[in-house]
Simulated scan of single mutants.
Amino acid sequence: MSIGYVNGRFVDLNEPVIPIDERGHQFGDGVYEVIRVYNKKPFMLREHLERLQTSAEAIKLKLDQTLEQYEQLIKEAIEKSALTDCDVYLQITRGVAVRNHLFPDVSVSTTMTVRPAKQLPHHLRENGVSAIFHDDERWANCYIKSLNLLPNILAKQTAHEKGSYEAILVRDEYVTEGSSSNVFIVKNGTIYTTPLSKHILSGITRMAVKSIIETEGLTLVEEKFTKEDVLESDEVFITSTTSEILPIVTVDGQKIGTGKPGEIATTLYQKFQEKIANE
């Protein structure tokens, strides 16, 4: 069953628990992680929590638990839910205090939900999905996994309204990432992805895919690329915790490669599933 957690106690998801002066609600003053659980085991949990810590430090938010304590809390929540495959959403905010821009001297607030995993329809993975290009209108520090996601939401909604799955964001003529994913392209057997910077999130699935590419002896180049590079590529795919590895077969209505999921994306997805099983 789906369950929630708020500052030390597990709650029903329908129970009203967020105070009106919660800073996450009023300012988006917090950070979060989404962790996929396969067969009751959270995938790359330590890497998620290390990124959570990095995000918290970047916004000067002092976590009130160690990473080991968060690990145990998440595992306890998964056990209580009795779910086998699920998504864990962990959110830490600066706490509850009368609205003021300055940091309050209060305890941080920790909330969490455990829900059944969002399963991607099989036909989307088998046939690939479409995407659009969209101006990257986000702030300068996208490496922080903060609660401030309005530009991402607007880009994703625009893609949806145009019948597409994802919006590929472009800043200063170069692709940064998707609205909720990292972007890879393939040209002549070489895989390219945008290098890490303050303008993109260091995706956990991106990290896993890099490891698989190295293990398989494939070539990965981390360098900037343009919209034209995307359209002229042989394959395009995105990575994220919930989408895993997903081929993009059209962008702005233009066919990518053969217009079908490519060999490299398909192979990487198979190897990703093996990595999940092994871990």
Rank of each mutant, 00 (worst) to 15 (best):
L150V: 07
K187T: 05
L150Q: 12
D172F: 04
Y165V: 09
R206Y: 00
I213Q: 05
Y165L: 11
G178P: 11
S240H: 06
G259E: 06
N141D: 06
Y269S: 09
L218V: 04
G253R: 12
T258A: 05
V221D: 13
E216Q: 13
E137N: 15
F237W: 01
H199E: 13
V170D: 01
V209C: 03
T239Y: 03
N141V: 08
D136E: 10
R171W: 05
Y192E: 07
V221E: 14
T190E: 10
E223V: 09
M207P: 04
R206K: 12
L218E: 03
S179T: 08
E173F: 06
H199W: 02
K156D: 00
G178R: 02
S164K: 15
I144E: 02
T241F: 03
I245R: 15
T258S: 13
T266C: 06
K156S: 06
A140D: 11
K255D: 00
I213P: 15
I256Q: 08
T241G: 10
N188E: 13
Y143E: 15
D136T: 07
Q157A: 07
T193I: 04
A131L: 07
K198P: 08
Y165T: 11
D136N: 10
K210H: 01
L246R: 10
S146L: 00
I191G: 08
I213R: 12
I132R: 15
N188R: 10
T176P: 09
T242G: 05
E177P: 07
E177G: 09
V230F: 01
F225I: 05
T250H: 11
I200S: 07
S211G: 09
T158Q: 13
K145H: 09
N152P: 14
P195V: 02
K145R: 15
K224F: 05
E228W: 04
A140P: 14
V236D: 02
V175S: 08
N188D: 15
Y174S: 10
S202A: 13
F184N: 06
E222W: 12
N148G: 12
V186A: 08
N188I: 02
I248W: 06
G217L: 00
H199K: 13
Y192F: 14
V251F: 02
L246D: 14
V251W: 06
Y165C: 11
T241A: 09
A131Q: 08
K224S: 08
Y143R: 14
G257L: 03
L201G: 07
E244P: 12
E263K: 12
N182I: 03
E161K: 14
T176L: 00
F272M: 02
T190P: 09
G217S: 00
N141A: 12
L268H: 01
G163P: 11
H160G: 03
R138W: 09
S233C: 05
V230I: 08
E216R: 14
T158H: 10
D136P: 05
I248C: 10
E214M: 01
D234M: 02
P261N: 08
L196I: 06
S180D: 11
